[in-house]
């Protein structure tokens, strides 16, 4: 990549007002560093990934509202987590967390366990029990 070929496309970096560093060669073939504001191929990839996550959140939301899963799954998706990550945050086995996705099991959980989830998701117990109380 030549110095003047370093892409300067619009990207999500703009919101944080920073540019990333790239390595490129100058006119004399010497390596130097150039700041880049972003590059479309990877911005598209990132936006796609975010779209996918939003889709997952929406699906989870519908499933919670139709009582097919517990709010835990919704909040897990909202926080871009998967089962291993969530289990690691709350300090429980994966199979237990998965079990807590069942509305029937969720409704019987002790406050102690619910508190763990609420802390992980940074929400109140009420919000944990009712996703419609959550602003997002």
């Amino acid at each position: 990549m030549k110095k003047d070929e370093v892409p300067q496309d619009k990207s999500n970096l703009e919101t944080a007002n920073f540019k990333e560093l790239c390595y490129a060669v100058d006119e004399n073939g010497e390596y130097t560093t150039v700041n880049s504001s972003g590059w479309d191929p990877k911005t598209i990839a990132l936006n796609k990934a975010i779209e996918d996550i939003n889709e997952r959140v929406e699906v989870a939301k519908k499933r919670v509202l139709s009582n097919q899963t517990s709010p835990i799954e919704y909040y897990m998706e909202l926080h871009k987590m998967d089962l291993p990550i969530l289990a690691s945050y709350v300090g429980l086995w994966k199979w237990r967390v998965k079990r807590h996705f069942k509305p029937r099991v969720f409704n019987k959980l002790s406050n102690n366990i619910l508190q763990k989830y609420a802390e992980t998701f940074d929400i109140s117990l009420e919000q944990l029990k009712n996703i419609e109380l959550h602003g997002n």
Binding site: V6, Y23, A24, Y31, K42, I44, L46
Partner: peptide, 26 residues
Amino acid sequence: HYLGQIVRMQEEIGTGGGGFRYIFAA
């Protein structure tokens, strides 16, 4: 989705572009 993942790992912040190949060339 998988293909996007490959590109992100290759080009996301921290690689210096081209999946670290340019840093290695430097």
